[in-house]
């Protein structure tokens, strides 16, 4: 059943990407979708995690939140680059607790941290994250764990 859904999704992708509706091109699409589904089944990559259907309906809200954070961090880092007398950076290496329960949550958390300029996740383990931050402020903001709370609240249904 999952393979079937996957195939339908891929075929929709094909139609939207090609934009042609001639029988020949649709036939080629069906053939390549079938091949892809076959290969994916052999590689065992169609599983629970590749279907983010269990995510909450508030997920778009999280995207808006993340986008706001990215914009703010961008402006901050750009200011630091353009400061006249030498780029004013005070690099920090901090460990913060990783409070997400699921693997998917942990990955979303680490990726969100890396996406925000000024902080990069360097390593990730079951219960802590090592983060390199560009400034004390960015590190301090991260240490409050606000982003982790946002993920818990908005990505997963309790």
């Amino acid at each position: 059943m999952k393979s079937f859904n996957f195939g339908v999704l891929l075929f929709l992708c094909w139609i939207f990407l090609s934009g042609h509706l001639e029988p020949l091109l649709l036939g080629l699409g069906v053939a390549s979708v079938a091949l892809t589904v076959f290969l994916s089944r052999r590689m065992n990559v169609i599983d629970h995690e590749s279907y983010p259907l269990h995510l909450s309906s508030r997920f778009p809200g999280f995207f808006l939140y993340l986008f706001r954070e990215i914009v703010k961090a961008n402006i901050d880092v750009a200011k630091r680059i353009l400061r006249w007398r030498g780029a004013s950076v005070s690099p920090q290496m901090i460990q913060i607790p990783q409070s997400q329960e699921t693997n998917l949550g942990a990955v979303i958390y680490a990726n969100s941290i890396t996406l925000t300029p000024g902080t990069v996740t360097i390593s990730l383990s079951k219960d802590s994250l090592t983060v390199h931050a560009l400034s004390k402020e960015a590190a301090g903001k991260l240490a409050t764990g606000a982003m982790s709370k946002e993920i818990s609240n908005r990505v997963f249904d309790q």
Binding site: I70, N74, I81, A87, V89, P91, L115, T116, P117, V120
Partner: peptide, 26 residues
């Protein structure tokens, strides 16, 4: 361009990664 300047002004590899992050995201 700001990001491009950033990767020349920042002192070490890890902070340059942040400058590259600007150009990659926003």
């Amino acid at each position: 361009i700001v990001g491009g300047i950033g990767i020349h002004r920042f002192p070490d590899f890890y902070s340059r990664l942040h400058a590259a992050g600007i150009t990659d995201t926003f």
